[in-house]
Simulated assay, not measured.
Amino acid sequence: MANTIEVKDLLDAGVHFGHLTRKWDPNMAPYIYMERNGIHIINLYKTSAKLDEANAALRKIAASGRKILFVATKKQAKDIVAEHAKDAGMPYITERWPGGMLTNFVTIRKAVKKMATVDRMKKDGRYETLSKKERLQVDRMRAKLEKNLGSISDMSRMPAALFIVDTVREHIAVAEALNLGIPIFAMVDTNANPRDIDYVIPSNDDASRSIEIIIKSVTDAVKAGLEDRKNEKGDDDQPKKKEGKADKKDAPKKAAKKAVASEEEE
Rank of each mutant, 00 (worst) to 15 (best):
T129A: 04
T129G: 08
T129H: 01
L130T: 02
S131H: 04
K132A: 13
K132S: 13
E134W: 03
R135W: 08
R135A: 02
Q137C: 00
Q137H: 03
Q137S: 09
V138S: 10
D139I: 02
D139A: 05
R140A: 11
M141T: 14
R142E: 14
A143K: 10
K144W: 07
L145M: 08
L145V: 08
L145K: 05
K147L: 06
N148S: 15
G150T: 07
G150E: 07
S151H: 13
I152S: 00
S153C: 02
D154G: 07
D154Q: 07
M155P: 10
M155C: 02
S156L: 14
S156I: 12
S156H: 14
R157A: 14
M158D: 08
P159E: 05
A161D: 05
A161K: 06
L162V: 08
L162N: 07
L162R: 10
F163G: 07
F163L: 10
I164Q: 06
I164Y: 07
V165P: 14
D166K: 04
D166C: 03
T167Q: 02
V168P: 00
R169W: 06
E170S: 14
H171I: 10
A173F: 13
A173Q: 06
A175K: 15
L178G: 12
L178P: 01
L180S: 01
L180T: 11
G181P: 10
I182D: 04
I182Q: 06
P183V: 13
P183R: 10
I184G: 13
M187W: 05
T190W: 01
T190G: 12
T190P: 09
A192N: 03
A192G: 06
D196S: 07
D196T: 05
I197M: 05
I197K: 10
D198Y: 10
V200A: 12
V200P: 05
V200M: 08
I201P: 00
S203V: 06
S203P: 08
N204V: 04
N204F: 08
D206Y: 12
D206M: 08
A207E: 06
S208Q: 12
R209C: 04
S210N: 11
E212A: 07
E212D: 15
E212P: 00
I215T: 15
K216S: 09
S217F: 05
S217E: 02
V218N: 07
V218A: 14
T219I: 05
A221V: 11
A221N: 09
A221G: 13
V222K: 11
V222W: 04
K223V: 06
A224W: 00
L226N: 11
E227P: 00
D228R: 03
N231F: 08
N231A: 09
N231Y: 05
E232T: 04
K233E: 13
G234H: 01
G234R: 12
G234M: 01
D236Q: 15
D237Q: 09
D237H: 09
Q238G: 00
P239R: 12
P239K: 09
K241F: 12
K241W: 06
K241A: 15
K242E: 15
E243Q: 15
G244F: 13
K245N: 07
A246V: 11
D247V: 09
D250R: 06
P252K: 03
A255K: 15
A256P: 00
K257Y: 10
K257T: 01
K258H: 08
A259I: 04
A259E: 14
A259L: 13
V260W: 09
V260H: 00
S262D: 15
